[in-house]
Design a binder for these strands. Structure first.
Lengths: 270, 270
DNA sequence: TCAGCTGTGAAAATCCTGTGAACGCAGGGG
DNA sequence: CCCCTGCGTTCACAGGATTTTCACAGCTGA
């Protein structure tokens, strides 16, 4: 049901006409997109958790090659597409050898740009899928996306598809509070009907299974009136046998001082 | 691992001038290259263990799209680059969406063609490499790709073509859950029609044959709502001859290897 | 304390997979 | 040329597994 992963794209371009047209299409396609008018440090790109980047060469100026080299070096899993008005074979070859995935000449058709970006991120994903996709680890939990399975210390957790996708989503956004609407949208793939409690029910199932296999850890925290947050935290430690009673009463952990930002549904692509 | 893997390229093109020039360069670069003047069945491409393919669209004629779909479907780890004399945006988009990795217009510079092929195959290092060396062994099963046959301890399993390809695909991805769509795409070569149950039927046939020749082993596991996973695991400790419902009834195996979500192939008491 | 949320347990509704069997097709033999 | 056989595909059904829905109880925060 989820073969097509949403594309998280950043566009670095000053050609507002082009960007506007492209944005309209990407939005319609449900991509998450961020537009920038100048180059930003590669580490900020890392933080954006992108899977594709479209850069107009002219924005980069003299730094172009070194910038591309750094970006490709630091984000080996990012699909990088460069576009440029005029270019020579030598430039294109140089960029491609540097690690850039595709080069498109301008003017170009937005549809083709999108198709190429899709191709590039498809390839990245595939190449990572089988080999050494570092499993997501949290607390005693380990999630392997390629196996559709989650593991706790002594074996695999027995999760259904929805449970797994929900857990994966939460764990992927570790530390962030996700609103129900956003969760529903991303796991179920469409908007949540008014009064739907499915998310709550699945949260409960996850909590039960997690508590059973990995007692003494609080994994999923409720934010009243908002949603849920995943954050593995060993609980007090006196009563591991206590049922799914949450540590919601206890005030916030000292660790998560940084991001208590809520992810709103409006940020979520279809 | 070697960062720079030799590229094994096949070129399908009738433009001898272009091919000659390109060959000179690829040879100088140490690539292994095979030149063909007409399309060959995707399974023969599989046998060639390529990591990149360059096709001139005009060679394909009317079959172009279905051929590309089959090739991209059956060889998801292959970098496919299409080149063509004249083309429209719609054609390029269609090809890219079909799974083609790059599209180059002719005339083009050989150096750029090579750079693009490199870019496309850059991330295609798969663990398949190790498998080529010897037969794939799993449980009591041994699969020899070169002979198109599978063996259990005392003799060969006779599998039909589809059965063999399915088994090979699964075993190749031992431990990973493969979704039905992905399986179908890779074995049949094109997208699965909605409601098609062929995969399930072949899984059953495989399970029957495996259980008959190698009882007491669970080879193919079902992940409900997702797909199948190949992983040889001896069932129950003591009585391989009676895989009744006991296995399912047992709550949790402390060993952790077993997973009650997984439906083991069980033979029905007639 | 109150209205609004969330946790829970269980029933009801859906969806998914295993299975047996029929169908159509292609190749080989008679 | 026709029949037989092996293979791949399709169908319909049954039994389960999973998801959704509901009603109610327990909490939360103002």
């Amino acid at each position: 049901m989820n073969p097509q992963q949403t594309i998280r794209l950043a566009v670095i371009d000053q050609d507002s006409g082009f960007v506007t047209v492209l944005s309209k299409r990407t939005e319609a396609a449900g991509w998450q997109q961020r537009v920038l008018t100048s180059a930003i440090p590669p580490d900020e790109l890392v933080a954006m958790k992108l899977n594709a980047l479209l850069i107009d060469l002219s924005v980069l100026g003299d730094e172009a090659w070194s910038y591309l080299e750094r970006v490709c070096g630091m984000l080996p899993d990012l699909g990088v597409v460069v576009c440029a008005g005029r270019s020579t074979v030598a430039q294109r070859v140089r960029a491609l050898r540097l690690g850039v995935d595709d080069w498109i000449g301008k003017p170009c058709h937005p549809e083709e740009v999108m198709a190429r970006i899709e191709a590039v991120s498809r390839r990245r994903r595939r190449s990572r899928a089988g080999i050494e996709t570092g499993p997501l680890v949290a607390g005693e939990l380990e999630i392997r996306a390629d196996q559709f399975q989650a593991f706790v210390g002594d074996g695999s957790l027995d999760l259904t598809r929805r449970e797994f996708e929900l857990l994966q989503l939460l764990a992927d956004a570790k530390g962030q509070v996700l609103e129900r609407e956003a969760i529903y949208q991303r796991v179920w793939g469409y908007a949540m009907a008014h009064g739907d409690r499915s998310v709550d029910v699945f949260i409960r199932k996850l909590r039960q299974k997690l508590e059973k296999r990995s007692p003494g850890w609080g994994y999923i925290h409720t934010h009243f009136g908002v949603g849920y947050r995943f954050d593995p935290e060993p609980i007090g430690g006196t009563e591991p046998a206590t049922p799914a009673k949450e540590a919601a009463a206890s005030t916030e952990a000292p660790t998560g001082a940084s991001d208590s930002q809520v992810v709103h549904s409006s940020f979520t692509p279809a």
